[in-house]
Simulated scan of single mutants.
Amino acid sequence: MNKRSLIILTLFMVFAFGCKSAKTISNGEANYKLSTKQLIKENTKQNPNFNTLQSRLKITLIQNGKTQAHTVNFRAKKDEFLWINATFSVIRALVTPERVSFYNKLDNTYFDGDYKYLSNLLGTELDFQKVQNLLLGEAIFNLKNGDYKTSVNEGSYVLQPKNQRELFEIFFLLDPTHFKVKSQQISQPKEFRHLQIDYVSHQEVEKQILPENIKVIAVEANEEIILNLELKNVSLNEDLRFPFKIPSGFKEIKL
């Protein structure tokens, strides 16, 4: 696995989540009559609200015709810590608003840095909140702070900036029944880059609608990475610890 694949895999292992006592959301009655302002308001009402969570997360990575599957423990303290631990602590990661850090005992390497590499990778400035939103099923950009137009296509609301940015294009697809994000897409045509996050299904937990199955497609030139995330066995709002220490003697990954 190359450095880019490892960073992407670790990132999504860290930021994906699920919830306790969940039931899959089925399609209800669609409402296609909302204005852009009303649509954004309804979407904002669905923002997740929790203090901590813990879950088992299955990640399936498909790259160059090869498939890898991993199941990890995931813990989070909303807006503060995101932590993963693979079996036997082979891979452990801790993400905070300031840093992205992880180590890999399979090759005795570690990474400890800021969000610069991830920002360069996607062609837009990233921070903890943006990436957290992306994996929690929220729009990567605050919809209330932008000027968007709305259309309906194949059963979904489509939100896009009235004036697309020069270097990349953004699209958000929202479900007309519960107004959660169904897909968000960022494209950089000149760089032949495309990132697409599809929320294949949602689940309802304690009156909150949250992602259940997520499909991530990252394309750069002729290279494509697909991640399928399955979220299960989650407990909510428990007292959790987030231990992390890079072992001595490990080699730093330079990006």
Rank of each mutant, 00 (worst) to 15 (best):
G146M: 12
F128R: 05
Y115H: 11
Q63P: 11
D147N: 03
I186Q: 09
E125K: 10
L231C: 03
E29V: 05
I246H: 02
A22I: 04
I8K: 05
G146H: 05
S5C: 10
F111Q: 06
F88N: 14
A93I: 03
K207F: 11
N145R: 13
N153P: 11
F179Y: 07
W83V: 04
L174A: 00
V100D: 04
I25R: 15
H178K: 11
Q63K: 09
Q188V: 15
D112P: 09
I225Q: 06
S21R: 15
Q185C: 14
A69F: 02
I170H: 09
E230G: 13
E154Y: 09
F172L: 13
I140Y: 03
R4D: 08
E42I: 04
K254N: 09
T10F: 09
N133K: 05
E98L: 11
R193Q: 06
N133F: 03
L143D: 07
K162S: 09
T150M: 14
T52N: 02
N43H: 14
N237D: 01
T67K: 10
K182A: 12
F179G: 02
D175R: 14
H178A: 04
K254V: 05
N120M: 12
L11D: 06
P247A: 03
K207Y: 09
K20I: 06
T52L: 01
K251Q: 01
A221D: 08
L82A: 10
S35Q: 02
E224D: 08
S89Q: 14
P211L: 03
L195Q: 08
C19K: 15
F12K: 02
K105G: 05
V181A: 05
N47E: 15
D127V: 05
K41Y: 12
T10I: 11
N237V: 00
E166P: 07
F81K: 14
F171R: 14
S101C: 06
D147K: 06
D147C: 03
L227W: 06
R4H: 09
P176L: 02
I186M: 12
L136K: 14
Y117L: 10
F50R: 02
Q185Y: 15
N142Q: 11
L11G: 05
K58W: 04
F250V: 01
H70C: 13
G249T: 11
S101W: 02
L134I: 05
T177F: 09
I8E: 07
K130G: 07
E206L: 14
Q38A: 09
V100M: 10
A221S: 10
F111R: 13
G123A: 00
H202A: 13
Q38G: 08
R193D: 04
T24F: 03
D127I: 05
E138H: 14
E212T: 14
P161H: 00
N213V: 15
E206R: 14
S201H: 03
K23R: 11
I225G: 04
K77F: 12
S187C: 10
K162Q: 06
G249M: 02
Y32R: 02
I246S: 00
I140P: 01
V90A: 13
S35K: 04
L134P: 07
L134Q: 07
F250E: 00
K245Q: 13
T109D: 00
A86M: 10
T150F: 11
L126C: 04
T67A: 12
K45H: 07
